[in-house]
Computed example of a mutant assay.
Amino acid sequence: MSHVVVSGANGFVGRALCRALLGAGHRVTGLVRRSGGCVDGVTEWVDASTDYHGIARNWPANMKADCVVHLAARVHVIHDTAADPETAFRATNVDGTLRLAATARRHGVPRFVFVSSIKAVAEQSRGQSLCENDSPRPEDAYGRSKRAAEDALIRMGDDTGLEVVIVRPPLVYGPHVRANFLRLMDAVWRGVPLPLGGADARRSMVYVGNLADALVHCATDARAARQCFHVADSDAPTVAELVRSLGRHLGKPVRLLPVPAAWLRMAARLTGQSSRVDRLLGSLQVDTSHIRDVLGWHPPFSTDEGLAATADWYRSTH
Rank of each mutant, 00 (worst) to 15 (best):
M1K: 07
V5R: 02
V13W: 03
V13C: 08
G14D: 08
L17D: 07
A20F: 02
L22F: 03
G25Q: 06
H26V: 02
V28R: 02
T29K: 05
S35V: 03
D47F: 10
A48C: 11
A48R: 15
P60T: 03
C67Y: 13
V69D: 00
H76G: 12
H79N: 15
T81M: 14
A83G: 11
D84N: 15
D84E: 14
E86Y: 02
E86G: 01
F89N: 11
F89M: 15
R99G: 09
A101W: 13
A102R: 15
A102K: 12
T103Y: 04
R111L: 13
Q124D: 11
R126D: 15
G127P: 13
S129Y: 00
D134H: 12
P136I: 01
P136N: 07
G143V: 13
G143L: 09
R147S: 00
G157L: 01
G161K: 12
V164Y: 04
I166M: 02
P169H: 03
L171M: 12
R178L: 12
N180G: 04
N180Y: 08
L182H: 15
M185S: 13
G191A: 00
L196N: 00
G197W: 04
G197I: 01
G197T: 04
R203V: 04
R203T: 08
M205A: 11
Y207Q: 10
G209P: 03
N210A: 14
L211N: 05
D213P: 01
A214V: 04
V216A: 10
D221Y: 02
A224M: 06
A225M: 06
A225D: 03
F229M: 07
D233P: 00
D233Q: 04
D235F: 06
A236V: 08
A236R: 13
T238H: 06
V239W: 04
A240T: 12
R244V: 10
S245V: 09
R248L: 10
R248F: 14
G251L: 14
L256N: 05
L256G: 06
P258S: 07
L270Q: 09
T271K: 07
Q273R: 15
S274V: 07
D278K: 15
R279G: 13
S283E: 12
H298L: 14
H298M: 13
S302T: 14
G306I: 06
A311E: 10
D312C: 08
W313I: 06
Y314E: 07
Y314D: 08
